[in-house]
């Protein structure tokens, strides 16, 4: 836990401005080592998803610092952060969020195309990835022709295709039954064993139990499992 840090959040604060200001993150300190698989758990409203979004560069924050693989997100513009995400991050969402107009293979190759990888190479790697995940026969199907489990496997393939530094998964099994949940969790664990860093938010204790570390949150603070920063 004190080896090669890939995620390093220090005194992270996030406030939602509205009629009433809500402090969603209250000075979070969290580190994740390269190759680690971490689950963030906690009751609803504890700030799990907000933390994930801030760490992944999907949302801005109001104080503190987030360093991902040596890059300080807090000092980046939206443009740089976007470019950084395209190279270094993969995402799996609860609602799968595949693009309905694209086939499975086309969905998977999006991150490669965004990085400027050629169309032919992107497609080859996309098909390879689908093959690895047992979805080669569904490569040309649109999302509405796939089951929920298949859609989420395609989403995982999309998250991994460009070998990101970190894969962020927000309730990746939240919409799946227990059988498919196991398939997805096994898949993530398998990928983690190849050295892929994965940070996931979950309500499911069984899913959390398959990770190497569990971070527990309550009221915008980490109760336990924040990890240790090398001195």
């Amino acid at each position: 836990m004190t080896g090669d840090l890939i995620v390093d959040a220090h005194r992270l604060r996030k406030v939602y401005h509205g009629a009433d200001e809500v402090e969603a993150l209250r000075g979070i300190d969290l580190v994740v080592d390269r190759g680690e698989m971490v689950a963030i758990v906690g009751p609803s409203g504890s700030g799990k998803t907000t933390l994930l979004n801030c760490l992944a560069g999907l949302d801005t924050f109001d104080g503190g610092q987030v360093v991902i693989d040596g890059q300080d997100l807090s000092s980046m513009s939206d443009r740089s952060r976007t470019a950084y995400r395209s190279r270094n991050m993969g995402f799996v969402f609860q609602a799968f969020n595949l693009l309905p107009v694209l086939s499975a293979a086309e969905n998977v190759e999006i991150p490669l195309l965004l990085q400027g990888v050629g169309a032919r190479e992107s497609r080859r790697r996309s098909l390879d990835m689908l093959e690895t995940l047992g979805l080669a026969h569904r490569a040309n199907h649109r999302p509405d022709q796939l089951s929920g489990g298949e859609q989420q496997r395609v989403a995982v393939a999309r998250a991994l295709i460009h070998k990101p530094a970190v894969v962020w998964a927000d309730e990746p099994t939240g919409n799946l039954d227990s059988e498919v949940t196991n398939v997805i969790v096994e898949l993530l664990v398998r990928m983690n064993k190849t050295g892929q860093t994965i940070v996931l938010v979950t309500h499911n204790p069984q899913v959390a139990g398959r990770t190497q570390r569990t971070v527990r949150m309550r009221d915008g603070r980490i109760d336990s499992g924040a990890g240790l920063r090398a001195s």
């Binding site: 443009r79 976007t82 995400r85 995402f91 969020n97 693009l99 999006i110 991150p111 965004l114 990085q115």
Partner: peptide, 16 residues
């Protein structure tokens, strides 16, 4: 909107 947000999350710029 959710699709556009995913694209942004995956690294597509606003101009994209």
């Amino acid at each position: 909107r959710p699709q556009l947000a995913v694209l942004r999350a995956l690294g597509m710029s606003r101009s994209g």
